[in-house]
């Protein structure tokens, strides 16, 4: 796989990933484009720069772990896994088809390199804590990264996990909150407001880093700050735009879970470039 810290290279990869997402969901005629597009820079920065992992050796015990707790954003994960060499790129457009390894939500039975089967919201952070605790027992440098949706943190288990991580000082886990402000039924602030975010997580004992979730340099710095933070877990509150990169999808609740039409796919790909 290509590892790089170079901004223009990472930006170029992000463009490819955005194209993959649109093409996959367009071909599947169903899926979740909005929350996939909002997490592109987060996953690209993690998979191509920050995380220590080896697609040629997916069971390497000291690898960093990644959990997409907001499993409905599967297309962005599938794209980065394909682009890094874990899975075949030429099958991406079989997303959601019967027998495809690219299931509607991430499924370890089809892609063993996945750390977790996700899709039911609220459980990924706790699962990551188990992996982080195992790494500590093994004195392994492995770190665990968990991407959460902002709507997802309405789930109570997230706060059980938040309390555990703060109390037990699990400093080898990093949560990344994809704060794109929209959930299925509409704007988060209208469904079940979650603010104030930074204060909530800080109150649970977390080191909170607010970051522009589309600014790769800022994300790199935030992940470095998280790694340097000892004695408490870190969370990146990544301010993002749902549907980022496709003008008609941006900030539009409709594209939480609706696939673009054939014409919209053309338009979107033109915009992404």
């Amino acid at each position: 796989m290509t590892r790089t810290s170079d901004l223009s290279e990472l930006q170029s990869i992000a463009r490819t990933v955005r194209r993959d997402i649109i093409e996959m969901i367009g071909a599947a005629k169903s899926g979740h484009p909005g929350g996939s597009l909002s997490a592109v820079e987060i996953l690209v920065t993690l998979y191509f720069d920050v995380m220590k992992h080896d697609p040629a050796n997916p069971t390497w015990p000291q690898r960093d772990r990644f959990i997409l707790s907001k499993g409905h954003a599967a297309p962005v994960l599938y794209s980065v896994m394909a682009e890094t060499g874990y899975t075949p790129k030429d099958q991406l457009n079989t997303l959601r088809r019967i027998g495809s390894i690219y299931q509607g939500h991430p499924d370890r039975r089809f892609i063993p390199a996945l750390e977790a089967s996700t899709g039911s919201l609220g459980v990924g952070l706790s699962l990551g804590l188990g992996m982080a605790e195992a790494a500590k027992l093994d004195k392994s440098p492995s770190r665990t990264y968990v991407v959460l949706g902002d709507g997802e943190i309405q789930e109570g288990q997230i706060w059980e996990a938040a309390m555990y991580a703060g109390f037990h000082k699990v400093d080898n886990i990093v949560a990344i909150l994809d704060n794109n402000r929209i959930q299925l039924d509409g704007w988060v602030k209208d469904i079940m407001a979650i603010e104030p975010l930074a204060e909530k997580w800080a109150a649970f004992g977390w080191h909170v880093i607010e970051v522009d979730g589309h600014d790769i340099v800022a994300l790199q710095a935030a992940f470095a700050e998280a790694e340097a933070t000892k004695g408490k877990p870190s969370i990146l509150i990544a301010h993002t735009v749902k549907g980022k990169g496709v003008s008609f999808m941006e900030n539009n609740p409709k594209y939480h879970g609706v696939a673009p039409t054939k014409e919209e796919v053309e338009l979107a790909l033109k915009e992404i470039g």
Binding site: V123, S126, L127, L129, G130, A134, A135, Q157, E160
Partner: peptide
């Protein structure tokens, strides 16, 4: 709930 998932994470890690 948190306990079960943490246990699953530990078991996933061997």
């Amino acid at each position: 709930a948190n306990m079960v998932s943490i246990g699953a994470g530990l078991a996933s890690s061997g």
